[in-house]
Each structure stands twice: as structure tokens, then as C-alpha cells.
Amino acid sequence: MTSAQETAVAGEKNAPNQSMPNADYTATAHKARVQDKVATGILAAIVGVIIVALVAIIVYILASGASKLVDVHFLTAKPEQFKAGGGIGPELFNSFYLLVLTLLISVPISLGAAIFLTQYAPQGRITNIAKTAIETLSSLPSIVVGLFGMLTFVLTLHWGFSILSGALALTMFNIPILVRVIQQALEAVPRDQRDAALALGLTRWEATMHVLVPAAMPAIVTGVVLSAGRVFGEAAALIYTAGQSAPVLSWSAPIWSLSNPLNVFRPAETLAVHIWKINSEGVVPDLSAVSAGTAAVLMVCILAFDIIARVAGRALERKLTAE
């Protein structure tokens, strides 16, 4: 809009004469300007409060558990149920093992589903059904996913409280997140890359696997690592699938033994589940120290995932475009 129009509109409202706006108009404009300043100030304050609260939460978690964070005994020893001085060694291992298994299962499935949805059938009935299903899965409470896992994997398939049951429950929790991330990453690759591949007589499969996926890799890696953080901290889906007990682990135990760390049919309490369990049981004498320490370890791992996600994504991007 031109300034002439602007003046005309303003004039219509209040000021009959452009060179001498009347007092009424000036007062209104002044009020509006003050209002604008006050509103901006309030909004900035809101943002400030959020940031302060967030930083406070993180500092609180890390500070409460700081002494345990550097305590090698705590990080490696087995947990104690009734006396003080227990560690979180098995829980730490279980958390990472479950994470790796979950990613091994969920990344290929999500990649496949995302490729189907973006490349083979961007429109149509099947796609609509699939999109609804994925959306439903993403909005299901994780406790419901965990209960379904208990019903299906633990009881119906008789796998018991086990790493496998837990990994599958986490997979269901993780798939919608990953499908969305990979879908967005693939769609963000410029269309001309796909056109170029198809115009050379490549199949959609080749175009996707050799051109689109490599080009989308930075975003995919970032998304996968960020989702790893979510999986790592998840507890509600695990308490009734991977279980709430952590057998003492020994690398020399045979693979079918519940003590063999890699046995996927053994129960495996993770860090997050450990925090929940000791707090709801409340029998460990050094409860607050152990849960604060565990939370700090959990938080450090998740912050590390966050940082790795960003750094790795950026590094890959740089490598691809090769400045």
C-alpha cells in the first residue's frame, strides 16, 4: 500500500487535514505505540521465563547428581535393593543395548514406509490409510503401547519381560517419529534431483536409494539421533515389556543365560525405568542420591544425543555440498 493511500485511510478515520492531524488522532496513535511496546516487553519476558526455567531444570538435574556422575563405582556397580551404595552398571548397558536394537528394527521399517509414502504412492487410498495409521500411532500414549506390548510380546508370544519385547514396544513408539522425519527429509531434496535420475532411465528405487537418500542423509541422521534421545529416556512403554529387574551381567555367561548381556530374552531395566521403580517402591535408603545420579546420567546422555545430532548433521551436510 502506498503512503498516499495510507494517509487517505488515516484521514478517513480521524484527521481531516494531513498536515495538521488533530489531537484525538495523535493520542490514539500514541496509545497504540505504547501498547505495542508493552506487549513486546511482555512477550520477551515470557520467553525469558521459559529459558530460565529450562536452564534451571537442566542445572538442577545435573547439579543434584553431579557427585554420582563422576563416581565410577556408581556407573559400573550393580544396583542394591535394600541397602545404600548401589550402582547403575547393568541399567546403563541395558539402556544402550535396547536403544541399538530398537534403532536396528525401527530405522529400516521407517525408511521403507517413508519411501513408499513419498516415492511410490504419494496419493491414493493406501497412502491415506497408512498416514492415518501412523498419525494414530504417534498420538497413542506410550503406556498404551507398553500395555499392548505386554499383551502381545510378553504374554501371547511368551517372550516374557525381555529385551526383545521392550525393543519392539519402543519400535512402535519410534516408528511414527522416524517416518515423519525421513518423509520430510526426502521431500526436502530438490525435485530436480529426482527428475534427473528418472530422466536417465533409473528406477524410482535407484533414484531413491542412490540419489535422494544420500542427499537427505544429514536430515535423516539428525532425526534418527534425536529420536534416539526420546527412546533412551522412555520408561512407560518399558515397565511392562522389558521389565523392572536387572539381572547381574557377566560376559562369560552362556548366551541362553539370563546373565549374558546380549541375551535378548532376559529382562532388562533401563535407567529411566530404574528411576521410576526406586521412587515408586521407595525402599532404597539412598533413594534421592541414586535417583538424582541416575537422572543426571540420563540427562547427560540425552544432551549428548542432541549435540551429536546437530554436529553430525552439519558435518554430513558440509561433506555433501563440499563447499
Binding site: 530436480d192 527428475d195 530422466a199 536417465l200 533409473l202 540419489v211 542427499a215 555433501l320
Partner: peptide, 21 residues
């Protein structure tokens, strides 16, 4: 077979679009 046809009938686009390779 579009794969066969496109191998025989090449195309160059408006914006240079080399692969990220």
C-alpha cells in the same frame, strides 16, 4: 518401458542439477 526409453532419449534440465556425488 520408461526405463528403456529414457536411456535412449536423454534430458537436460533448466537448472543445472548434478547429483551430490
Amino acid at each position: 518401458d520408461t526405463l528403456w526409453l529414457r536411456k535412449r532419449v536423454g534430458m537436460v534440465f533448466q537448472q543445472p542439477n548434478p547429483f551430490r556425488k
